[in-house]
Design a protein around this nucleic acid. Structure first.
Length: 365
DNA sequence: TATGCGTGGGC
DNA sequence: TGCCCAAGCAT
């Protein structure tokens, strides 16, 4: 076990910790938003909310959270549910491994911890999908443990507050920020303090347009003192998404459509798709698609008219989906992952947005 | 440490 | 319109 030999960073002398925490909490107590997961501090409710909120906006999460808690009101209910139902409840929310990890972790909590979310950093960090941020958030909000919960908001707030020029896209910056936050958490109010930092980042200390004139901790902000709040935080740019072209098959048969369940790892794991293959350009699109469908699905088709192209951009990929309507000539034995499903049947399938776009178009024509 | 992993909203 | 961004985690 290698441990860091780097010294723990010290808060700047110019930063008044006590006054900052006091004023921030006073503002939070008066101004905090009324959010569905703040009804109480039930660890399961906090847990689900924190997973959904990863890289996802509050307004987007709200309806999903209501629906999810209605369907899976307890850890046991989530643990005992079929995985397809959990994925369906996550449909459209993105980062679908969160759903699978959440259910796997719920099953672990049920069997290992008697259905009670553990309250130690050691144990909670072992749960699938629970990283440093989520662990700190649950421990502080649900159990009032003095652990930092450093997300993008907190890094932005602290980079301005303490005039830090560290690149917040780098993992090391999160570690450093955690060490600094740890030195500022007020005794007995860790959960509210962590939430207040995030609330400040989400509503006042905004990325492009920091609202310094209405900031409750204006007086403590070292970047504002220097007039450089717009220059912070420093954040290196991500690589542009890679472009990929796919041939996609719409294959109707007696009111049903050929659909395929994707593998349980990687992109869009366990989600449903239309049969598709990466376009090589070595043959005509029609020949490539027909050959692929015969080899992979045992389906002999005549490739017909091209439908409108669908484009979909992920964080790291840009898909061009070249969609073709096909006519079945002969059907052999389908692979285990594939099925001809009617609209009533596929209503229970979870589809990524890219394919929702295609299904939407088909249903209107 | 860098990369893979979704989606929708704001300007 | 094309970016940037959002209560990150796994590998």
């Amino acid at each position: 076990m290698k441990t860091s030999t780097k010294a723990i960073p010290k808060l700047p002398d110019a930063f008044e910790v006590f006054g900052f925490a006091r004023d921030l909490l006073e503002w939070y107590d008066a101004q905090k938003r009324d959010l569905p997961w703040r009804i109480n501090r039930d660890p399961y409710r906090v847990w689900v909310s924190e997973i959904m909120l990863q890289q996802t906006r509050v307004e987007t999460v709200k309806p999903y959270y209501h629906n999810f808690m209605g369907k899976f009101p307890t850890i046991t209910a989530l643990a005992d549910a079929p995985e397809e139902e959990v994925l369906k409840a996550w449909e459209g929310l993105g980062y679908y491994s969160r759903a699978r990890n959440l259910q796997a972790a719920a099953r672990e909590v049920k069997t290992l911890y008697g259905g009670e979310v553990p309250d130690t950093l050691e144990e909670i960090s072992k749960l699938k999908g629970v990283g440093p941020y989520t662990a700190g958030a649950i421990l502080s909000i649900a159990y009032e443990k003095p652990e930092p919960a450093v997300d993008g908001n907190v890094m932005r707030v602290f980079s301005r507050l303490l005039l830090m020029h560290d690149d917040i896209a780098k993992p090391a910056t999160r570690i450093k920020t955690e060490q600094l936050v740890r030195q500022t958490i007020p005794h007995g109010r860790a959960g509210d303090f962590n939430q207040a930092l995030m609330e400040l980042g989400a509503t006042v200390c905004l990325p492009r347009t920091p609202q310094c004139l209405t900031c409750p901790v204006f007086d403590y902000c070292l970047a504002r003192r220097e007039g450089v709040q717009h220059e912070l935080p420093v954040k290196s740019k991500a690589k542009p998404p890679r472009e990929v072209n796919y041939l996609v098959a719409v294959i109707p048969l007696e009111g049903a459509l050929l659909l395929n369940k994707r593998p349980n790892t990687g992109l869009l794991a366990d989600m449903w798709e239309l049969p598709m293959v990466e376009m090589t350009g070595k043959r005509t699109p029609e020949d490539e698609l027909a050959g692929f469908l015969l080899e992979q699905y045992g389906v002999d088709v005549e490739v017909g008219e091209q439908l409108p192209m669908v484009q979909h951009t992920f964080s790291h990929l840009h898909w061009n989906l070249h969609v073709y309507a096909c006519n079945v000539i002969e059907v052999g034995e389908l692979p285990a992952s594939a099925v001809f499903a009617t609209p009533q049947e596929w209503a229970d399938f979870a589809f990524p947005v890219a394919f929702q776009k295609i299904l939407e178009y088909i249903s209107h024509s």
